[in-house]
C-alpha cells in the first residue's frame, strides 16, 4: 500500500525538479528570450530574431532551409523586368488553392534572360491576406519562376492594399533567394543547369544526328548525282 497522498508528493517532486532545473538546464527552459541581444548571429528561428529598439524589420528572414512564407518572383539579373523568369503561363493561377494569384499576360513578347522573346506578366498580384503558404504554385511552375520567400514582417494598417503584393514587390533576385534558402536554391540552380545541359546535349545530339543524316544524304545524293554542291543544314 502506497503512502497516503504519495502520488501527489511524486507530482510535487516533479514540479520542484522542473522549477530548480529551469535555472540550470537549457533543455528545460526552452523559451526563447525575445529581448534584444548584442550579437550579430543569424537568427535560427522566427522567435529568435534580433530587433533594435523601434526598428521595423521588413526583410527579416529565417534560415531554416525550407521555411516558407509567401511567394516571390525570381529574376536573374540587375534589372528585374529584363530577366524575369515568369512567362505568364498562368498555371499557378489555376492551381492556387485559395485563388490568391492574379495574372495578366502581356500583349507583346519581350526578350528574357536567355535572349529569347517571351511573354511576361503585365500584372502579377498575390493577395497575401488570402495566401496560405502552401507552396503549390512553386511546385507546379515549369519555369522555376516562383519560389517561397521567408519574410514575415508584413503587418500593415491597410488591409486590402497593403496586403496585396504587386509584381514589383514580388520580384526578388536569385541572389536574394540564395541568401535566404541556400541549400534549396543551390539544388534548384543545379537542377536547372542539369536540365539545360541535358536539353542542350539533346539538342546537340539532335543537331549531330541531323547533320549526319544530311551528310549521308548528301553523300548519297553526291553519289547519285555527282557535281551538285553539298547542302549544309543548320538545325536550330
Amino acid at each position: 500500500m502506497s503512502l497516503l497522498g504519495g502520488g501527489i508528493f511524486k507530482g510535487m517532486a516533479v514540479t520542484l525538479r522542473n522549477f530548480v532545473g529551469s535555472y540550470f538546464y537549457k533543455d528545460r527552459l526552452t523559451t526563447n528570450d525575445y529581448s534584444w541581444r548584442p550579437s550579430d548571429k543569424l537568427p535560427q528561428h522566427a522567435g529568435e530574431y534580433p530587433k533594435e529598439e523601434g526598428e521595423q524589420l521588413r526583410d527579416t528572414t529565417t534560415v531554416t532551409n525550407y521555411s516558407r512564407n509567401f511567394p516571390m518572383l525570381l529574376h536573374d539579373g540587375s534589372e528585374p523586368m529584363d530577366t524575369i523568369r515568369c512567362v505568364a503561363c498562368q498555371i499557378c493561377e489555376r492551381e492556387c488553392p485559395p485563388q490568391c494569384i492574379y495574372i495578366e499576360k502581356s500583349t507583346e513578347k519581350k526578350e528574357n534572360a536567355g535572349g529569347k522573346p517571351q511573354f511576361y506578366p503585365a500584372k502579377f498580384d498575390i493577395d497575401v491576406s488570402v495566401c496560405m503558404s502552401c507552396q503549390i504554385c512553386v511546385e507546379v511552375c515549369p519555369f522555376d519562376a516562383i519560389v517561397m520567400n521567408s519574410q514575415f514582417e508584413l503587418s500593415t494598417p491597410d488591409r486590402f492594399g497593403g496586403l496585396l503584393l504587386r509584381r514589383d514587390d514580388l520580384l526578388k533576385s536569385n541572389d536574394y533567394y540564395h541568401n535566404i534558402h541556400p541549400e534549396e536554391a543551390a539544388a534548384r540552380d543545379k537542377r536547372i543547369a542539369e536540365e539545360k545541359a541535358a536539353k542542350e546535349a539533346k539538342k546537340k545530339a539532335a543537331a549531330e544526328a541531323a547533320r549526319k543524316k544530311a551528310e549521308e544524304k548528301a553523300k548519297a545524293d553526291a553519289e547519285a548525282s555527282e557535281g551538285t554542291p553539298d547542302i549544309q543544314e543548320d538545325a536550330e
Binding site: T15, N18, F19, G21, S22, Y23, R28, L29, T30, T31, D33, S35
Partner: peptide, 10 residues
C-alpha cells in the same frame, strides 16, 4: 518556472 517558462521579466 515550474512550467519551464520565464515569467514576467520585461
Amino acid at each position: 518556472r515550474i512550467q519551464n517558462r520565464i515569467g514576467p521579466n520585461k
